[in-house]
Write a protein that binds this DNA or RNA. Sequence first.
DNA 1: AATTCGTGGGT
DNA 2: TACCCAAGAAT
Length: 355
Amino acid sequence: MRDTTSQDALPALLLEWYDVHAREMPWRVGPAARKAGERPDPYRVWMSEIMLQQTTVATVRDYFQRFVTRWPSVRDLAAAEDADVMGEWAGLGYYARARNLLKCARAVVSEHDGEFPADHAALLKLPGIGPYTAAAVSSIAFDLPHTVLDGNVERVMARLHDIHTPLPAAKPELMTKAEALTPETRPGDYAQAVMDLGATICSPKSPACGICPWRHPCAARAAGTQNELPMKSPKKAKPVRHGTVYLAQRADGAWLLETRPEKGLLGGMLGWPGSDWIDTAQERPQGPPPLPADWTEIPGEVRHTFTHFHLMLTVLTAQVPQESEPARGSFVRRQDFRPSDLPTVMRKAFDLVTN
DNA sequence: AATTCGTGGGT
DNA sequence: TACCCAAGAAT
C-alpha cells in the first residue's frame, strides 16, 4: 500500500516521538522542561556543539563536565590560560577546536558583552563556528528556525528521500530537503529530534526501521535501500609515516617538553621534542636530539593512526643532569606535569617509557 | 573544492 | 587486522 503521509505531517510525527524518546544529556533541556519555558544556557549549548564535532556523545560527556565545572561561564573561559584549556582538551582530538574555543569565548566577551548572539549570521562570524554549529546554537539555544545538517541529518534525509547521490556531492540537495521539513514551531526540539533519530533509530548500520516514526513516508524503506544509504565517495588510503621522539628526564624528575606550533597537526599542544614525521623512509628520521645525551631506544614503538596517515614512532629516552640546557623545549617539574595534558600519541610515548 | 585536522569504540 | 564511524571547520 502506497504511503499517504503528507510531508506537512512529518515534523509533528517526529516531535511526538521525541517527546517520549529524547536522549538525556548534561547540556540539554528535555522536551517537557522546555515546554514549561526552560531554555538551555547558550554557553553550554555552544560548548557541547564544539565538542561534539566529529566526536561521539559518550566521549564528550566527561570532557563537557570538566570544562563547565572548571569554567562555568564564557567569561571564566575567556579569562583562562591557553595552556590550561589545551591541557583540559587533550585526548579529545581536533585541537583547532580548542584554540578556536578560546578565541570564540574571548570574542563573545569583547564583542558581544559576554552574551552569545542569537543571530545566525553573527554566530557564523565567530571562530570555530561554521554552518552546522551556527544553526545548532541558534535553534537549540534560541529556538530560531534554522536547519542543522550534520552526519545524522544527511543520513536521515538520504534515506527518507531515497537519494543515491554520493556524499559530499549530495550535501546541497540534502540541505534543501532538510530545510523543507524544518518547522516554525519548536525548531530547537526538532533539530535535536532529527539528530536523535539518526543516532538511535536511523543508524548507519542495521537501522531500526520497524520502530521509526517516519517508517511510512520513508522512500528508502519502501525501496529496500536503507542499508546502502547514504552513498559515499571512496576515500583515499592512508600512507605510513615514521618519526622519532626524545623523552629526557632530568635528575630532579622533570621532563623535557615543548609546546607545538599553533598551526598544523596537534597545534598548540604539549609534546615531546623530535624529528619531523615523513612518509615511508628507508631509514627512520631521527633529527637532532634536543640535547646531547646517552640516548637509549625503547624496544617496541608507538603506533598511532591520525585522520590521514598512520604513524610509527621510535622512542628514545635519556637521564640528563640537573644543569642541562636543552636546545628545544623546557623542563616541566613532575608536580606541574599531568600525562593527561598530552595528546594521545604523546601519551602513548610516555607510557612506553614509564611502563 | 579538495585537504587537513584526532581519537576511541564498534564490527 | 582493518575499516567504519561520530552533533564539522578552516583553508
